[in-house]
Design a protein around this nucleic acid. Structure first.
Length: 794
DNA sequence: TGGACCCGCGCC
DNA sequence: AGGGCGCGGGTCCA
């Protein structure tokens, strides 16, 4: 991060109003002005703003976004050095500053830091960062971003946003090669023209008249009567939809004109988070639109962090939109949202989506993520939309059965604990779900102490702590908590998600994680409890997931130990590879862990549960993954899975690391690579960006960097398999129900079971990428998800 | 009252 | 200071 920029004095410009001040620097003729707060002491010395550490960083970022440093004019609110300037200080320099901006005539004025943004716009930067907005008084677009100094002080995540923001410079200014045409110089960038359709005939005419063909693109967005965020397709009705074509022709069609529409074919549709829209249209009108472009997935391909892909944000950052969504919601809450406000809102959503697609595509090509988006994300969006639409059948009788068994126990257990607490002197009714109250009871009223190895930590009531404590209340509490979790989170949680068709329709979020794992919610089918963890009794919750009909069966296909195999492949560690070939990696390499735990189990018993082989293997697994991802000895010793002292854990780690020395070297090299290159890329082109690893959380970021290639590549396997399988399976009458990280669950007609099983195994096991290993797949079948047995049809 | 945050816990 | 998620609940604050 040491970009050098020639300092030529003839670029020092701008007026001064203080002695020993610091002039502006650079060429304002291309229309970009960057404003800082005040020159640092060294910058007063050099006479040039942004020439200290912050400036070096700014130079490097500009270089990274291909905008010449000399084509930016930099200056400061204050032209003289002052720490923490007061409003009076700023006022004292104001005339000079205003004259300087008038002279520079920027098209885009970038404010570095909240103080500058507030001084210029009169608004807080929070909620407005990275959103260029037109200021008529300046005749310029004004954008606030973080000051590089904030990053230098230790917040390394800021840099990602600063980079994204400065990357907008060419988009707004325009480039000579025409790659970016630039925003209009009159501030009209966010204007949206639209018409509201007034008859069914007109609606049909609009749809029939939409452009078709490879180069065309039509965005579409529906509004429903309830949801703002995600659409519950079974409980909400469409109020209107709109289509936008050729940049700025938007038509809003009220729902009353949609009933008998003949939907056009051959249109290339663009959505913002299209899975929900296509499913609602499919449910309501029986039309199945294909997702050709999706501005949310584009945004995710460019920035894997969460929370930045909502149209509310991207339209403001890349289309100059104001907070129209916030305003509309506000009106809606107050009950003054008229139909015409709704139509305007809908038109903006659709128009901005249409504008985002080519804009993002440009950025995607620069960042080399276009293929990832086109070949992986878009096909996945269509497949996951279908998965979600079809849903998974649930056995409602089984739910009732479990409820009858569990609810009385659940309630009785709670009452027992409440009265126990009263006996101990707790006033009133203790809330067992409140960690704060439990801490007061255990460590206050009962005067218990945290176990020794947690003595230095703040009070906690998590299982790994409570298991080390000996008290009748705690024993009962642990049982209650587990049952409570099963009942509220799963039994009731899943039941509440059942729709009228007797099925759950989990939403799949392609953009749900930074590593590329899809996430499922409503209900969260990836977290359904397993027997080894909660025991055979409570894990019966899995039994409620059943095949579509009696002629079908569930088939589950698991990649065996995929993360371990990929770790061995990526690191090329010969010992690890040999251990893998010799059989079960977890039992061979973590043998000493198991030996320890067997001894301990023998000595004290594992909280009344049988020290089963399967549990031990699971624990060894935890140790292995802890080692993969650089878990410390301290935490390993504390985890209830490896019940050992710090010294023992520490020597275990040392042995593990000595054995897999090559893996350790690889992990180090990955961390270096993340630091030096600023990003890691998997074989499908999926990225995790780090930019600069700096500051307090650097250790955390480094661990993430080791995790990413392994977890990310495992995803590449499962997701590309899923895509390859999805269509062909329909020929068997079979389909994918869901995926759980390294496995997929299918519903298969009994008559096609053998063929499907063979086909699925064959597709999943073939080498997915040139040179990459083939991973063995294990098959299981069952009449419900809770009683799957291994299926050997070899 | 609604939103942000943490806790605790399920999965891989 | 293992990584990656979602959810229910509590708590705190505006």
């Amino acid at each position: 991060m040491t970009a050098t920029v020639e300092i030529s004095d003839d670029l020092l410009r701008g007026p001064l109003c203080h002695h020993n001040g610091c002039r502006g620097y650079g060429d304002p003729s291309r229309g970009v002005v960057i404003v800082g707060i005040a020159p640092g002491q060294d910058e007063v010395g050099s006479g040039r703003p942004f020439s200290g550490p912050s400036g070096k960083l700014l130079d490097a970022i500009l270089k990274a976004v291909y905008w010449p440093r000399q084509d930016v004019y930099t200056t400061n609110l204050l032209c003289w050095w002052k720490n923490d300037p007061t409003p009076a200080d700023i006022a004292g320099c104001k005339d000079r500053f205003v004259n300087e901006i008038r002279w520079a005539k920027p098209k885009l004025l970038i404010c570095m830091g909240n103080l500058v943004y507030e001084a210029i716009t009169g608004k807080e930067m929070s909620g407005n960062r990275g959103r260029p907005t037109w200021m008529p008084t300046l005749g310029a677009y004004v954008m606030g971003t973080y000051h590089p100094a904030g990053f230098l002080r230790g917040n390394s995540q800021l840099i990602l946003d600063i980079c994204k923001d400065l990357q907008k410079i060419p988009m707004i200014i325009g480039t000579p090669d025409g790659e970016w045409c630039g925003w209009p110089a009159d501030g009209s960038v966010s204007n949206v023209r639209y018409t509201v359709v007034e008859s069914a005939e007109e609606a049909q005419a609009v749809l029939d008249g939409l452009p078709r063909g490879e180069d065309s693109l039509v965005s579409i967005d529906i509004e429903t009567n309830y949801g703002e965020e995600e659409i519950d397709i079974f409980n909400e009705e469409i109020t209107c939809l709109s289509v936008c074509w050729d940049h700025d022709y938007t038509a809003v069609i009220p729902a009353c004109y949609l009933d008998d529409i003949d939907w056009p074919s051959g249109v290339r549709w663009a959505f913002q988070n299209g899975m929900f829209d296509v499913n609602k249209l499919r449910q309501r009108y029986g039309v199945k639109l294909a997702i050709h472009e999706d501005s949310l997935l584009q945004s995710y391909s460019l920035d894997e962090r969460g929370g930045v892909h909502k149209l509310e944000i991207t339209s403001g950052e890349y289309c100059g939109a104001d907070h129209y969504k916030e305003q509309f919601r506000y009106n809606k809450r107050r009950g003054v949202a008229t139909n015409s406000l709704l139509y305007e809102y809908n038109a903006k959503d659709t128009a901005y989506t249409r504008r985002l697609v080519p804009c993002f595509e440009n950025l995607q090509r620069k960042d080399n993520v276009y293929q990832l988006y086109k070949d992986l994300f878009i096909p996945l969006a269509n497949v996951f939309a279908d998965i979600s639409y079809q849903g998974v059948k649930v056995d409602q009788d089984k739910i009732a059965e479990l409820a009858l068994e569990w609810l009385p126990r659940w309630l009785a257990s709670e009452e027992q604990l409440v009265s126990m607490a009263n006996e101990y002197g707790w006033p009133g009714r203790i809330n067992l779900n409140s960690p704060a109250q439990l801490i007061k009871l255990l460590f206050g009223v009962l005067s218990l102490r945290m176990p020794n190895r947690y003595a230095r930590q703040k009070p906690s009531t998590k299982v790994e702590v409570l298991e080390l404590m000996d008290h009748p209340f705690i024993d009962a509490l642990l049982d209650f908590r587990q049952l409570d979790h099963m009942v509220t989170n799963y039994l009731i949680g899943i039941k509440d998600q059942i729709k009228l068709d007797g099925r759950v329709h989990p939403a799949v979020l392609i953009h749900g994680s930074r590593t590329g794992r899809p996430s499922y919610r409503n209900p969260p089918v990836q977290t359904i409890p397993q027997p080894y963890s909660v025991g055979a009794e409570l894990s019966r919750i899995k039994e409620i997931f059943v095949p579509d009909d009696e002629q079908s069966i569930l088939l589950e296909a698991d990649y065996k130990q995929i993360e371990v195999f990929l770790a061995a492949y990526l690191s090329q560690d010969p010992i690890m590879q040999a251990d893998l070939e010799s059989g079960d990696f977890h039992s061979s390499t973590a043998a000493d862990v198991i030996a320890r735990m067997e001894r301990d189990a023998f000595l004290q018993g594992l909280r009344g549960k049988d020290p089963l082989r399967i549990k031990q293997r699971f624990q060894a697994k935890k140790v292995t993954f802890g080692n993969f991802y650089r878990q410390g000895a301290d935490s390993l010793a504390r985890k209830r899975v490896a019940d050992c002292t710090y010294a023992e854990a520490s020597s275990m780690l040392i042995r593990w690391r000595a054995r897999y020395r090559i893996y350790e070297e690889w992990a180090d090299s990955i961390m270096r690579s993340a630091t030096e290159r600023g990003e890691l890329v998997t074989v499908t082109g999926r990225k995790r960006r780090f930019r600069v690893v700096y500051g307090d959380d650097s250790a955390h970021i480094l661990r993430q960097s080791v995790n990413f290639p392994i977890q990310g590549s495992a995803n590449d396997y499962i997701l590309t398999s899923l895509l390859e399988l999805y269509e062909p399976l329909s020929a068997f009458g079979a389909r994918v129900l869901l995926s759980v990280h390294d496995s997929m669950l299918f519903c298969v007609p009994l008559v096609a079971l053998a063929d499907c099983a063979q086909y699925i195994k064959c597709v999943m096991e073939k080498p997915r990428f040139p040179g990459w290993p083939s991973i063995e797949v294990e098959l299981k079948i069952g009449n419900n998800w809770g009683s799957m047995v291994s299926y050997d049809k070899t």
